[in-house]
Write a protein that binds this DNA or RNA. Structure first.
Lengths: 207, 207
DNA sequence: CAGGTGACATACCAGCGGTACGTACTCTCA
DNA sequence: TGAGAGTACGTACCGCTGGTATGTCACCTG
């Protein structure tokens, strides 16, 4: 059992991240002031600077939470699929769902890259959603029969991840997200089917 | 001939955008102060606020310039190709070149979305680089034989544009950009070939 | 129970974007 | 041609923001 002091500390920290996530989501990073955050959490700046090194660190905490929520949702959707191509479809569907959440759109997609810097942003992503995509791509394309080396598999992951992110953004701003998501699934499904067919045929001819 | 006053006015405005583009490129949007911009252009804030409504408007002017440079480079590369699939390859290559320019990476890719907002950012893009990709996609997939409606063509454009952007980012940060670009060309080329083959076969079977 | 330390609160600062206002130059037209 | 209007700035200032320095008090430990 943590000490009483520790429990108080944890709760204020959590309150700060709670409020920060909400304000960052609704107003964006630069339009959210530290004063607003500490006022919402009912503490003062002293408390905030005791727990975090600055505004960016608060953002980072909120960012991690939003992203881990999204990635765990996707991971759950991809479980229990044996066929990698089916798994890819399920993952894509879950990804398109996750990207609709306002917090994800604002905090991760919109503010994430510029606030954390592309470097750190990529590090974060590679440990969550990107990792899932990478795993799917490798299970689908990484067989010896296709003869793709590591760098090429990486390239394919990057491409698919970029395609999904862009498509997700389009779905999110669409008037009819359901129809848009269906189109995206169809389009990417077609691309995957074509890729699969091509790789299969070249694999047999090489044999 | 414009009046003497007009010429003076134009030159200071251009000087402001020149300096702003450079500072935004090297330090990013938020780390660039208006004081630094006006000092670099050797004027005062009064001049800046006479020509622009604020910091964001200055950024927008720099943004448009950087992007039009990039898109005109891509447009030039795609000229004179009859076969749409060849045109696509040439466009992709030029895109991967353009994305390496520091100004494009920082101003357009990194700061663009969050500073302008995704809404305005997309409007800008749809009038330049995105429009080129859209045109290529439509010339390649928009034939009656493939039976894709307008919304599906839009979806494919979004997907390819996202894939190219992500791939371009990866190329830009790579230690060996040349090799990375070659891998991207190969990967996207494979995807396009597979898509083409699949669409061709389903088009003939439908006939 | 005395000293140390963790968990904040308070007061303050420099720098930032933005504004109000002043001024000099130039173009227009009676 | 010269007086008024408008353009193209310069100067001075303001409120707010992120960040810091320092104080205070509850709690834990020996």
């Amino acid at each position: 059992m943590r000490s009483r002091r520790q429990r108080y500390s944890d709760s204020t920290k959590r309150a700060l991240v709670d409020v920060a996530e909400q304000l960052f989501t609704t107003h964006g990073y630069s339009a959210t002031s530290l004063d607003a955050i500490v006022a919402g959490a009912d503490v003062t700046k002293g408390a905030l600077y005791h727990h975090f090194s600055g505004k960016q660190a608060v953002f980072e905490a909120a960012f991690e939470r939003v992203e881990s929520r999204a990635s765990s949702g996707i991971a759950r959707a991809t479980e229990g699929h044996d066929d990698p191509w089916e798994k890819a479809q399920a993952g894509l569907r879950a990804f398109l769902e996750a990207v609709q959440e306002p917090a994800y759109r604002q905090v991760v997609i919109s503010d994430g890259p510029s606030v954390l810097g592309h470097e750190r942003f990529r590090e974060q992503e590679e440990r969550s959603t990107y990792a899932i995509v990478d795993e799917i791509v490798r299970s689908a394309l990484g067989t010896d029969a296709y003869d793709l080396d590591d760098a090429m598999l990486d390239t394919f992951t990057r491409i698919f991840f970029g395609a999904m992110s862009a498509a997700g953004g389009a779905v999110a701003v669409s008037q009819d997200p359901g129809a848009a998501a269906a189109r995206v699934e169809l389009a990417i499904g077609t691309i995957m089917a074509g890729l699969r067919q091509l790789l299969d045929s070249s694999a047999t001819s090489r044999r």
